[in-house]
Amino acid sequence: MRDEEFNAFAAGAWEPLRRTAYLMTGDLHTAEDLVQDVLTRVYVAWPRVEDPGAYARVAMSRHMMNRWRRATRRPRETALRVEHDTAMDDLAAAVALRTDMVAALTRLAPRQRAVVVLRYFEDWSEAQIAAELGIAMGTVKSQLHKGLRRLGVHLTSPPDEQRPADPVRCDSTRPAPDAALPAAPAAGVMPDAR
């Protein structure tokens, strides 16, 4: 009975967990390994688990954070493979947007990526994210703000254009780049010193 219930749960939860893990890790094979580890933990705890879906998501976020914390086992940051998600000419614009979003997520720092994915993909509250990742609520908010700003920069720039990770802040005393500059005096003419 226990095995049948778990098998039914694992079959239904595999794909949603793999998608979330893929967005958090940036690598399909690492994501599948992560989901396998999480499902193993769920199986061991199955008799005492009331909500296996919630338990699996929490176990996945904790397991991912533990991987990031361990300096010796810290995974190498890899780019999401665009060839898995390239938009074809006959597909809708939504698929192209998804591809751009996945590519932009790879440019975020691991904690920013985790916070953005948990908040907007898994629909967790800021308090839940702070509790699960062991960080302050203010850190969650600042990571969300920075992550969304970087996503906006990467999603609005053309793919071939190299833009900096963060927009350059201008000093307010400097003129704007389009502001008209005073004309230089002609050669040999002294400016009026009134």
Rank of each mutant, 00 (worst) to 15 (best):
R150S: 04
A93I: 10
M1Q: 12
H154Q: 11
N66E: 03
E5C: 03
R113E: 02
L39R: 00
V82F: 14
E5G: 09
V35R: 00
L181D: 09
D178Q: 02
Y120T: 01
D178G: 03
D37R: 03
R48C: 07
P175W: 08
R150L: 07
T156I: 05
E126T: 15
R149M: 11
A56E: 00
R70F: 08
A127T: 12
Q162L: 14
P182T: 02
S125C: 04
V35W: 06
T99E: 15
T173N: 11
L17I: 01
E83D: 13
L181A: 13
M190A: 14
L151F: 02
V115T: 08
V168I: 10
V82A: 14
A136C: 00
R76S: 13
D100T: 06
R149T: 10
T86S: 11
V189A: 10
R113Y: 03
P167R: 12
I135V: 05
R174T: 10
R19Y: 05
A184G: 03
S172D: 14
D51R: 07
R98L: 07
M60Q: 06
K141P: 02
T72C: 09
A45Y: 01
V49I: 12
Y120G: 05
F9C: 02
E32Y: 03
Q112R: 06
M65D: 00
A8Y: 06
F9G: 00
S142L: 06
A184P: 03
W46V: 05
R48H: 15
A79P: 09
Q36L: 10
E4K: 04
G152Y: 12
I129C: 07
L34A: 03
R41P: 01
R41L: 08
S61A: 15
D3G: 08
A187R: 11
T106C: 11
M88L: 15
R113K: 07
L80K: 07
S172C: 08
A93T: 08
R2Y: 06
A176F: 11
L144T: 09
G12P: 05
D3S: 15
N7C: 09
T173H: 14
D192R: 11
L97T: 14
D33V: 01
M1I: 08
V44C: 07
A109T: 15
A103Q: 10
K141L: 05
S125F: 00
W68V: 04
A187H: 08
D166P: 00
N7F: 07
A59P: 01
L144I: 13
P182H: 04
A104Q: 11
A183L: 12
E5A: 14
A79D: 09
A104W: 09
A71T: 07
P164T: 06
F121K: 05
P191H: 02
V189H: 12
A104K: 14
A11K: 15
A13Q: 02
M24Y: 03
A79K: 12
H154A: 11
R150G: 00
R70C: 10
A8M: 04
M101P: 01
P175T: 09
A54Q: 15
F9M: 05
A114M: 13
A165M: 05
R174Q: 11
D51C: 01
A109G: 14
A87S: 14
D100Y: 11
T25D: 00
D100I: 01
L181T: 10
L28C: 06
M190S: 13
H154R: 12
R76F: 04
G12I: 10
V38C: 00
A8C: 08
L151E: 05
L144G: 02
